[in-house]
């Protein structure tokens, strides 16, 4: 029972974490990043934002696989 509870709470935690990152590239949060200033790593902010959030989403995916996925 304790084992199931632990897994359930892990599922909720990592599920919410992944969903938050996913929401960052979508409306309405993503639309707030639609501007050029400031330039970061030579990129306008809107481009940098997309690459950064997509990279974050990949990292969170790896974390989810490591901590939650079976096998």
């Amino acid at each position: 029972m304790k084992m199931l509870k632990t897994r359930k709470s892990k599922q909720i935690f990592y599920g919410v974490l992944w969903l938050l990152c996913f929401l960052m590239v979508n409306w309405p949060i993503g639309t707030m990043a639609q501007r050029f200033e400031p330039y970061i790593l030579g990129m306008p902010f809107c481009l940098f934002y997309f690459w950064a959030v997509y990279s974050l989403l990949i990292l969170v995916g790896v974390l989810v696989a490591w901590r939650l996925f079976r096998d």
Binding site: N26, W27, T31, F36, Y39, G42, M43, P44, C46, L47
Partner: peptide, 24 residues
């Protein structure tokens, strides 16, 4: 260094770097 290319894109072709609201 791609800074110059990116600045030119933003200044002259800014529409290609932004997603219009109706396309979301």
């Amino acid at each position: 260094d791609w800074s110059n290319m990116m600045r030119t894109m933003a200044e002259e072709h800014g529409d290609k770097l932004l997603i219009p609201l109706e396309k979301w």
